[in-house]
């Protein structure tokens, strides 16, 4: 059972601001709605806003939600947060604000808060006449996760806003990668990309501060406002190795990662040859004499080599 906070349960059992808003009769007041999700995805939110046009102020907010306990609570929370705010203030609201309002959400349910933030944005953009990037056309909105219809900008945004560092987190926040899982590598690349961007931005901020400090002289203290750097994750493209590089690398991994363990058990392994992706090895000593353990050993060596050298490698044992 999910561990929901009392606030989540309270807003689920006693939701506030549910329903729709009638078209405005008063002059100077507009009513719009924005929507995200679909029944196919398992959750959907239609957010209705009543806006005082001259001040761009949210007079009223209502929601209609198809979804689980936390989706309904997040929607209700969102309406409470934005009432009385101007549109510009409302656009500053992140999914974190919604989750915080609820006293937190289980990690796997964070996407409910993201849905709230996105519906808000959709409603405001609609009011302002800004087209929201459609997910399957232009380059800006390249569709990454085809199962849940999640675009590159959405994924990058959630990585940035929430300092996400793993693919699993991205799946928890926007569902991307949670279906057929064929886009997991793409998501990994996006995480690396965002982190690189953040690192570059941080360096730029530092440089700017340093320059400013330099021009002001040493007398003044400047508090840096740079965001904390998430741990750097290097992008992992398939390396292109020459044959020599490949053989050297395989030998290194055998020597440093595998042979010490085997030698300790009275066995050993020797690299015999490398043909394309086939790594031919000779097993010796204690392990070489035991047919059943060889299969296990072969898999273990193969796993290490796949992990540390090239994922396409296969290990074969040669006699001798």
């Amino acid at each position: 059972m999910w561990e929901y906070t009392d606030k989540v349960l309270d807003l689920f059992y006693n939701p506030v601001n549910q329903g729709t808003i009638e078209p405005a009769a008063e002059p100077g007041v507009a009513v719009v709605f924005g929507e995200v999700g679909s029944i196919a995805c398992g959750d959907a939110l239609r957010l209705h806003l009543k806006i005082k046009e001259d001040q761009e102020k949210i007079l009223d907010a209502r929601f209609q939600t198809f979804g689980c306990t936390s989706a309904i609570a997040s929607s209700s929370a969102l309406t409470e947060i934005i009432k009385g705010k101007t549109l510009d203030q409302a656009l500053q609201i992140t999914n974190h604000d919604i989750a915080d309002f609820l006293g937190g959400l289980p990690e796997a349910k964070m996407h409910c808060s993201v849905m709230g933030q996105e519906a808000l944005e959709a409603a405001i953009y609609k009011y302002r006449g800004i087209a929201v990037a459609d997910h399957d056309d232009d380059d800006e909105g390249t569709l990454i996760c085809k199962c849940y219809g999640v675009t590159e900008p959405r994924i990058k945004r959630v990585i940035r806003d929430n300092h996400l560092t793993t693919v699993e987190q991205v799946t928890n926040y926007v569902k991307a990668g949670g279906g057929c899982s064929s886009c997991l590598a793409d998501i990994e690349d996006l995480i690396a990309e965002v982190q690189q961007e953040l690192a570059v931005a941080a360096v730029a901020v530092k440089t700017a501060i340093a320059e400013e400090q330099g021009s002001r002289g040493a007398g003044e203290q400047v508090v840096t406002a740079a965001p904390p750097l998430p741990s750097a994750v290097a992008p992992l493209p398939l390396p292109i190795l020459t044959n020599i590089q490949k053989i050297t690398l395989i030998q290194q991994v055998l020597d440093s990662e595998i042979r010490p363990l085997l030698i300790a058990d009275g066995g050993d392994v020797q690299l015999h040859d490398v043909e394309g992706d086939r790594v031919l090895v000779k097993l010796q000593g204690a392990c070489g004499s035991c047919a059943s353990s060889n299969a296990t050993l072969k898999y273990a060596i193969e796993a290490k080599l796949k992990d540390l050298v090239l994922p396409t490698l296969v290990v074969q044992e040669v006699g001798g």
Binding site: G19, E35, A44, F63, C147, G149
Partner: peptide, 23 residues
Amino acid sequence: RALSPFNNDQADWLQERDVALAH
């Protein structure tokens, strides 16, 4: 159901992602 934006099978945004999901 009173909370849900859906109440029939014809809602325009209902089937939106069926094509993508039908793999």
